[in-house]
Structures are given as C-alpha cells and as structure tokens.
Design a protein around this nucleic acid. Structure first.
Length: 485
DNA sequence: ATAGGGTTAG
C-alpha cells in the first residue's frame, strides 16, 4: 500500500493490526494511482491531509507533477498540495513542479506566493529557468501588466536566470501572442544588437503582426530581416501563409503558396495543413479537400492534425456525416485519433442537434483510451444548455467532477449563464453555489457574471444568500476591490 | 517553454 493503513482511515478501520502475524510477506505495493491521491487531496481538509502526507511513501517527481496537473483547475488545493510536499518531501519537487505551482499562483494573481516560490526554487537550486520567466511574464502580460513584464524580463539575471537570445525570443513571443506586437517590435529594435536578434526573433514579430491581421506590416518585417542578412525559413513562410488566411486574404494566401512551390520550397505537412484549415474555415470546402488530396499526391504524409483540420472543416462548413466519413478513413489507414479529433466531431454532432450521438462518441473515446478533456465536457454542457436541457448540462458537470477532470473557468461561465435562461429562482440558487465554488477553486469571476448572479439572487428574494456570498468572498480578500460593497 | 499546422463561439 502506498499509505500506511492506520493513518489512512483512522475512523473506519482502527483495528486489524494483529492480522500481520498471518501475513509475514505482504503483497507488493500497487503502483501509486494519481487519481486516488488526487481525489483524496480534493476531499480532505488541510490538517488531515498533513497527517496523511506524513505517512505517504513512494513519491516520485513524476507522480507529484501528475497530481499538480490534475489539480490545475483547483488552484488553492494545488498550492496546498505543493506546500505539503515542500514541507515533508522536499527532494520530490522538481523544477517542473515549481513551474506548475508558479503558474497556478500567477493565474490566481497571488503575486506574493509567486515570488516566494521563485525564491524557494532558487534556494533549492532548481531554477528559476528561462521557462519559469516565460510563464511569469506571460501571466503578467495577460492581465494587462506588460510594462511590469518588461521590467521582470530585464531583471531575470538578478534572480539567477540567464538572459540570452532564447529567453529574449520567448519574451517577444509572449508579448506577440497577447497582441502586444508593437511593444515587442520596439523591444526588438532596442535590444537586437545586445541579443543578436536572429531569424526566429523576426519571425516572431511577423507572426505578431499576422495575429492582429496586419499582413503588410508582417511582410515589411520580413523584408527588414532579409536586409539585415537573415534568411527566412520554411517556418517563416508558414507563418505568413497562416497570416493571410487569418486576415481573410485567400487570394494572397494562394499566390503565396504557389510562390513557395515555384521557389522550390520544401513544402511540408504544416504548409498543407495550414492551407486545408485556412480554406476550410473560410467556407472553401472544395479547395480545402483539393489541397488535402494534393498533399497525398505530393508524397507528404498527412498527420493527425491534418486529418483534424479536414474533419473540422467538413463538420463546420459541410456536413458532419462527411466529417465522420473522413474519421473512418483515417482509422482505416491506421491513424490513432486524439482528443482533438473527437472534440471536433462531438462539436459537429452537437451543432447538428445530434446530442445522443455526441454522447456516444464520448463513450467511444473511453473505449479507445482517449480521455475526454475539459473542452469535451464544455462543448457537451454548452449545447445541452443551449438546447434548454439545463438538467442534462448539470448532470454532465457533476460527472466530470467525480472523474478526473476538474471544471475550468469556461465551464463555470457556461453553466452560470445558463442558469438565467429559465427565469427560475431555483436556478439562481444553483448559480450562486457555482459562483461560490468557482471562487473557492481560485477562479476570478468576471465582474459582469458576479454582479449578475448577485442581482439575480436579490431580485428573487434570496438576499441572505447574496449577502453571505459577499461576506465570505470579501472576507477572503480574494476579490478585487470593485466587488466589495 | 525560440518561431509554424487541429478544439472555443457567432
């Protein structure tokens, strides 16, 4: 056993010590099961948990990381778990585990904990690494603190983290993905000498302009890059290609694709998949199919992602049944569908009102050792709620909890919004409960959602509940100031 | 997480 039995179940099984006489050679310990431990952590209060941890053996760094990942959508529990490990089995914590914990603290905007963890990581000589700083700066940028993120990046070395071209490029990418491309470009111009900016740096900036649909500017960046003696790579071209599609410039995309071929670029599976997806989402289903066939004709082996792109396109812009035909075709060819493949089909079926068949596919996933993820559940819940089957949505929500998938922020938003459509006061009580639960799990509700639930409770004569929520949450100090009365 | 391709919701 992983757990010493006496401490494991102190209330229910206090006796059978004597049996050991008859069992001199206990059976070998079963492999530690992350699910069991995760559920134990979720159900147990902090103090009891501390006792249990005292008696836990057989920890491995991998197990610790797996559990942290499972607790991803329950920030407070994840950090509680992390600090218990830190106290009892410090040597089990890896750099990856620290990165997870830091990411979670940052997501909860608990900056004090974040920097404590960084210091602790450093004290244990586990980092912080450039990856750690990519995580931290990404979180700061995503909540609007880009200037602060720049300062953090520039002071990385003071935390014992090397500052080099790679970490510079990562940071530029963080800014670009948060649509702060102008800021990234300014930084590039300031620091390109110091860090010796390369093709990757410029490609990242070009991608940043593509993400905000400014393809002419992206092309300018590439021109500048070439003038500085840096050569584009296939990745650079694929970035541009995707940019044209994103900006709705289908003709430019097509011309660019032809030009790539004419210049004897070694067009790869990513190029083709970009074309299939790009054409497809703009409704050009036949052209998407043609490109897919051309890929096979050219001897480029489609990947699972290629199939996913085609299936998605068919499900969305053509007919789910045609998507399912391609799904069967990929199975015939020996491909192993992944969770995205299933999610695309499930969404297609839901969208077509075929909820029962969508549910069948979730079962099929299980049979094929492909675990449904939170996105799978969110799709099903959303469509049940949209179809007015709120109870079924809630049922699926409950089921994901008892499994090993915790709801995320989207799940709560979907469900809470659904609690307003029927104008039933009972629904609002559920909304209130969900709100309390999500806050307890470290999610910050949007101001709009929070006020909507509170107002709803007030209007339906549930003042006491509303007041209780406010008192609890402001007492915890977890809510931003605008929520306080 | 040094840059590119599949999921979100119209």
């Amino acid at each position: 056993m992983l757990l010493k039995t006496t401490k494991f179940c102190p209330k229910t099984s206090p006796k059978p010590r004597k049996l050991h006489h008859f069992c001199p050679h206990p059976p070998p310990a079963p492999p530690p099961d992350p699910n069991t431990i995760t559920n134990l952590i979720l159900e147990t209060d902090p103090q009891t948990l501390s006792h249990i941890f005292h008696n836990l053996t057989e920890w491995t760094p991998d197990l610790a990381c797996t559990i942290l990942k499972r607790l991803w959508n329950h920030g407070p529990k994840a950090l509680e778990f992390f600090s218990l490990l830190d106290r009892h089995n410090a040597y089990i914590l890896s750099a990856t585990a620290f990165d997870y914990a830091i990411d979670i603290a940052a997501r909860m905007r608990d900056y004090k904990t974040l920097w404590t963890l960084v210091a602790r990581m450093r004290a244990q000589k586990l980092g912080p690494s450039p990856k750690t700083f990519a995580i931290i700066t990404e979180r700061y940028v995503s909540c609007g603190k880009s200037d602060k993120a720049v300062k953090i990046f520039l002071s990385m070395h003071k935390h014992g983290c090397p500052q080099d071209l790679t970490s510079f490029n990562s940071f530029l990418d963080v800014l670009c993905k948060a649509k702060r491309v102008e800021m990234a470009y300014k930084l590039l111009k300031i620091f390109r000498g110091k860090f010796r900016a390369d093709t990757v740096s410029y490609s990242i900036i070009a991608n940043g302009f593509c993400l905000v649909k400014r393809t002419p500017k992206a092309l300018e960046i590439l021109k500048e890059m070439v003038e500085r003696g840096l050569s584009p790579t296939l990745t650079t071209y694929n970035i541009m290609l995707k940019g044209f599609f994103r900006a709705g410039q289908l003709n430019e995309a097509w011309k660019f694709f032809l030009e790539m071929k004419r210049r004897k670029c070694e067009i790869d599976v990513v190029t083709y998949t970009t074309m299939v997806h790009g054409f497809g989402v703009k409704g050009e289903v036949e052209r998407a199919r043609k490109v897919f066939d051309e890929m096979i004709g050219a001897g480029v082996l489609p990947s699972v992602a290629s199939y996913n792109a085609l299936i998605q396109v068919l499900c969305k812009k053509d007919d789910v049944e045609n998507g399912i035909l391609v799904f069967h075709e990929m199975l015939r060819k020996g491909y192993i569908p992944n969770v995205t493949t299933y999610n695309v089909i499930i969404r297609g079926l839901c969208h077509d009102g075929k909820m029962d068949r969508a549910m069948e596919y979730t079962e099929r996933m299980k049979d094929n050792q492909c675990d449904a993820n939170v996105q799978t559940y969110n799709v099903i819940i959303r469509y049940y709620c949209d179809a007015g089957e709120t109870e079924k949505g809630l049922e699926v929500f409950e089921k994901m909890g008892e499994g090993h998938c915790l709801p995320n922020l989207d799940t709560y938003n979907i469900l809470i919004s659904a609690m307003f459509v029927r104008k039933k006061s009972d629904d609002l009580l559920v909304a209130g409960k969900l709100l309390v639960e999500m806050i307890g799990r470290g999610f910050l509700p949007r101001k709009f959602i929070f006020n909507r639930v509170l107002n709803g409770l007030l209007l339906t004569g549930n003042q006491d509940f509303a007041r209780e929520i406010l008192r609890n949450e402001s007492g915890l100090g977890r809510l931003p100031r605008h929520f306080r009365l």
